[in-house]
Each structure stands twice: as structure tokens, then as C-alpha cells.
């Protein structure tokens, strides 16, 4: 069984967002980039577990980005993965990104596509579903466990107000979240091996984006915390009622 894991690179969680060019762009100078945590901790690690248990034979990683994201892909390869594919384009339109990946994936014969439930930069959570639609595959989002039995994926997923267990024939796209696997750190052997694993670069297909970001805004600064004495909870409740109007 061949697994494809979709990897996105994102600014590290602790990055302070600074705007530039009249608020039309994010200043990326000095930003540390990481593998999107949902892609890494859950999707990629689960793929590695499936290979370790003999269910998967091969793991490929795919990403959309320019050459400067290669260190992040090498890090993903150091965790596990036999080969990486970088689609040489920059895109923040989910449809465009999904078409790039779908056009590569169509003829590549993957049985399972894993991705994170969303990326922590643009927080869309749309690429995986779009990919499934473009590939005419089923999609299971918000997965909390992923098992493979023969040609069938058995998946627990979060639903509105609870959880359900689904079964679905392969191939399928599954978007992973907490529960699917436990985070790992790459070991020295993996880091050394990653240097020699193939990282293919392919040209993007011609597709125009359907959305564009016009400008950014930073949230208004907090007015500052109003401290209430631990012995005066009546005052806190009154403030929540009259001032915050939340109860």
C-alpha cells in the first residue's frame, strides 16, 4: 500500500506576526518555519506507524512551495518517508493548491492520502476535501484514529456532538487530528538518511487562483486585565453581567 502525506510549512506557533507593504503582506524575515503540526504529529506519524507494522510499503510526502521550504521537507523525511515531491509554486488559494496536488496525485496510484485537519497559518482546512473532490475520492475529516484492514479504512472521527466509526474503501483522503498518533522526534539515523532520500521537484499545472488576500489586520490590543479580589466574586459576576454582557 502506498501512502501520500500532504505537508504544509507554517510559521512556528510562537512567531509574532508583523505586517508590511501597507498591510498587504506578512513580514517573514526572521520567521522560523516548521512542519504544520497536524500534518507532522498525526498524519505523517500515523503513516510511519502503518509502514512499521507492515501495512504500508511506501510513504511519499508532497508539498507546494518554493525551494526555501526544503529544510522543512528534509525534516519531514527525517521522521520517515521514502521520497518527497515539491511542487514548485507558491499558493495561498486552497483551490489552486489542491489542483496542484491533485494533478500530481492522479496518476501516481496512492491507496491512502493523509493530511492534517488544517494548517495553522491560514486555518482553512479545505485542501484535503478539495483534493478528495478533484480525485473523485471519499474524504473523512477530523479523524481521531485510522486503521487499515485489507482494502478498507476504519476511522473514528469527530462529528457534531460526538464521535462515530466509519468504514470506507480505499483510496480515501483522511484529515487527521489529535488521537491519530503521538508526536515523535526524528533520530540521528533518520536525519542522516533523509539527506540521501529523493526530493523531486515538479512544475505546477497552470491554474489561476479563485481567491486573493487583499490585506491583513492585527487584532486590537487588549485593554488590559481588570483584577478582581478572590474574596469578591459577586463583583466579578456583576461585571460579567453589566459590563461584558456575557451572562
Amino acid at each position: 500500500m502506498k501512502i501520500l502525506v500532504c505537508i504544509s510549512q507554517v510559521p512556528d506557533t510562537t512567531t509574532k506576526i508583523i505586517l508590511k507593504d501597507n498591510d498587504t503582506a506578512i513580514n517573514s524575515q526572521g520567521t522560523t518555519y516548521i512542519i504544520n503540526p497536524y500534518d507532522e504529529w498525526y498524519a505523517l506519524v500515523r503513516a510511519i506507524e502503518l509502514k512499521e507494522s507492515g501495512i504500508a510499503t511506501e510513504i511519499h510526502l508532497v508539498t507546494v512551495g518554493k525551494a526555501d521550504i526544503e529544510p522543512v521537507i528534509r525534516k519531514a523525511l527525517a521522521l520517515g518517508g521514502d521520497e518527497a515531491i515539491r511542487i514548485d509554486a507558491e499558493s495561498i488559494d486552497p483551490y489552486q493548491t489542491a489542483v496542484y496536488i491533485a494533478d500530481y496525485t492522479k496518476s501516481a496510484g496512492y491507496d491512502l492520502v493523509l493530511c492534517g485537519k488544517e494548517s495553522i497559518d491560514y486555518n482553512n482546512g479545505t485542501t484535503g476535501v478539495l483534493l478528495a473532490e478533484l480525485l473523485d475520492m471519499d474524504y473523512i475529516g477530523f479523524a481521531t484514529s485510522v486503521k487499515i484492514e485489507g482494502n478498507v479504512a476504519i476511522v473514528n472521527r469527530e462529528i457534531e456532538g460526538g464521535e462515530e466509526t466509519d468504514s470506507c474503501n480505499l483510496p480515501v483522503v483522511i484529515a487527521c487530528q489529535k488521537g491519530v498518533a503521538e508526536a515523535r522526534i526524528p533520530n540521528m539515523r533518520g536525519i542522516m538518511a533523509a539527506r540521501t532520500r529523493p526530493l523531486k521537484v515538479i512544475a505546477p499545472s497552470a491554474i489561476t487562483p479563485l481567491t486573493a488576500i487583499l490585506s491583513y489586520e492585527l487584532p486590537p490590543a487588549k485593554a488590559g486585565v481588570k483584577l478582581v479580589s478572590a474574596d469578591n466574586m459577586d463583583e466579578l459576576v456583576a461585571l460579567l453581567h453589566t459590563e461584558a454582557k456575557s451572562i
Binding site: P11, T13, T15, K16, I17, L19, I26, I120, D121, Y122, N123, P209, L210, T211, A212, I213, L214, S215, Y216, E217, L218, P219
Partner: peptide, 23 residues
């Protein structure tokens, strides 16, 4: 007035983006 621009949260709440739908 700006096309079809809608505000959404990005970078896990650390900023907002005005996304213009072109289609």
C-alpha cells in the same frame, strides 16, 4: 466596494485577512 472581500481569522487568531473571492 473592494470586490467580494470577507474578513477571516488567520495565524490562529494572531491576525485577520480580507479574502477577496475572484470567481
Amino acid at each position: 466596494e473592494k470586490g467580494f472581500a470577507i474578513k477571516k481569522s488567520v495565524f490562529s487568531g494572531k491576525a485577520f485577512a480580507w479574502v477577496n473571492v475572484l470567481s
